[in-house]
Write a protein that binds this DNA or RNA. Structure first.
Lengths: 340, 340
DNA sequence: TTGAAAGCGCTAACAT
DNA sequence: ATGTTAGCGCTTTCAA
């Protein structure tokens, strides 16, 4: 910066004014300084800028599992929206947590998430976009609120913590799935949900059960198999158990698409025809739900839009809006395809 | 920091020593300072630290399309390896580029990639992990080399630019696919590759063609349809054209799995049975290649390992190794599944 | 409209 | 073993 100032014969303050677009420098001088900076290949240090201003013009997006296509589509929406606002999105893959076994692993997952969040904050990130939150992450959310770090939860949310959030109506979506299955004549419907401590998974589970109750039915599988990881592997394993049990089943309603893909794997293994012997449904419509000849019946959710709206909500907070927490419910849509 | 120093009754320098683990402070004092810092909830500013030391203890990972599961699996490997080394990986979704139409879009893609890369550098990122590079990105690579920014290319590489790289032997992998198809009796093999300006795509195309030549054959489709985006959409569109043309075809060898999924979509539309009427092969083995009842025949590549090795190579450079560029070829493996 | 100078929070060389 | 201090590269207040 001093080099630029020297070459231009001005003070470093003028260079700063010229380059940041601040007033206090004539248009002519601004142009001249810009040209010189450009020629010298000068680029301001975002670090020094950050230290001085306290802001890094970046927002952090925390993904529990970057390998999950559903969340990466949200990420793409967030990046696009942030770009429009002149901010950079720095994405972190948190890891762990997803395949948490017991309470220890769970604590480790919460700790790791908090560590990554703090690293973003210590880099003067202007705000945080959080995904895949579980009940155990409530302390982190509370910490962020206490320290006035803007944060919005995407898709999943931690209950009982006042915080901005964008997502869909999970309970209603799950209900629509059940009604669809009932309409197509299924009566022995097993339910394979996600993690018990995930609010979204719990809402879906409740949606499944409530819709079944309304028809005078209940899930065809016992309580204990109903919760598990939201992974293809977990779907496969739980479906195997389910089939091994021998209870008559003509449909499996899954808490998300990944689980449903695992169930499809199990059907394939055990020789069940889909949808003739058994119907399978997902919930998410991640783009790989519709691969090959057997496309998954699911509920589609506006992934990109969740990312975009999340960024916009975050911005309101970054700009100082301190109104009450906003919870925005976006529309979803049932997508009947081949598996029902 | 000054607060901590005041409470502890020491200078801020001692606090720095104590917290960074530097020598120059007794174990006892170090412990006391740590305790106080902890109690006060003090966390050092990574920004100030970065400004002072010139390093941010972070590396940047640039993904052209975060939505592509293949690259996110590489990312997971990179994050794990970097964590072991005490570094943070900050991931950026570059966008654009992938669906570049003409030269303009291509230039825009190159510009956007360069912009994102520079943003990481201006944040004092210690090094860059680059994916999905095209020939057009050569100037960026040259700039990084000139400015001594450590960088390693993952999977794809830009030819003619001395730079570290980890990937597989694309030519050989493509050849194995063709030989597998020949072994299963296919003779009318169409080839649907990726982008012409991608080195990996070009190597695969050459591998396909060379292996066909060795058997006295050539691709069943004309030159012009052979190149395209590496997306499911592109696979679908090009397969439609191919089928509409009416040339007899009993196999389609695709440049990657995404394209193959598109071809599967087209088969489904047009009523071709896979693999009875036509065999379809991918190349990548992204985890969604094996979804549902019709699992894709493909070549599996060590995705996580590419990420891990990439980080390790990057570290050698960060630590000052200035030896000649290293190109590391990792093993791949043919995975015959349902579509052949 | 422009310049001088203080200071963001830390580290590291130097002095004690 | 501990403290003092300069300065990383920038922004911004204040003075000219």
């Amino acid at each position: 910066m001093n080099d630029v100032a020297r070459v231009a014969g001005v003070s470093s303050a003028s260079v700063s004014y010229a380059l940041t677009g601040a007033p206090g420098v004539s248009d002519e001088l601004r142009e001249r300084i810009r040209a010189i900076a450009n020629e010298l290949g000068y680029r301001p240090s975002l670090v020094a800028q950050g230290l001085k201003t306290g802001r890094a013009r970046s927002i952090g997006l925390l993904l529990t599992d970057i390998t999950n296509p559903f969340y990466t589509e949200i990420a793409a929406g967030a990046v696009a929206a942030a770009g429009d606002l002149g901010y950079e999105v720095l994405i972190s893959h948190v890891g762990l947590g997803q395949d948490a076994g017991g309470d220890d692993a769970d604590d480790a997952g919460a700790a790791r998430l908090a560590t990554v969040a703090r690293a973003h904050i210590d880099r003067y990130s202007s705000g945080l976009l959080l995904t895949s939150l579980l009940a155990r992450d409530q302390p982190l959310l509370a910490e962020l609120r206490r320290t006035h770090v803007p944060a919005v939860q995407l898709y999943r949310r931690v209950p009982g913590e006042p915080s901005d959030w964008v997502g869909i109506d999970d309970h209603a979506a799950a209900g629509e799935i059940i009604n669809h299955l009932l309409t197509t004549g299924r009566r022995h419907i097993a339910v394979l949900g996600g993690q018990r401590s995930s609010y979204a998974s719990a809402a879906r589970e409740a949606g499944f059960v409530d819709a079944l109750s309304a028809a005078g039915l209940q899930p065809a599988n016992p309580d204990q198999g109903r919760w598990g990881d939201i992974s293809r592997r977990s779907g496969l394993e739980r479906a195997r158990e389910l089939f091994a049990r021998g209870t008559p089943i003509d449909a499996v309603a899954c808490g998300n698409d990944l689980i449903a893909l695992g169930v499809l794997d199990a059907c394939r293994e055990d020789g069940f025809a889909v949808p003739d012997d058994v119907a399978v449904t997902g919930l998410d419509d991640m783009s790989f739900a519709s691969v090959g000849p057997l496309q998954l019946t699911t509920v589609t959710v506006p992934r990109e839009l969740i990312g975009r709206r999340g960024v916009q909500m975050l911005f309101r907070r970054i700009e100082g809006d301190s109104g009450p927490p906003v919870e925005e419910v976006l529309p979803h849509q049932l997508r009947p395809r081949d598996t029902t």
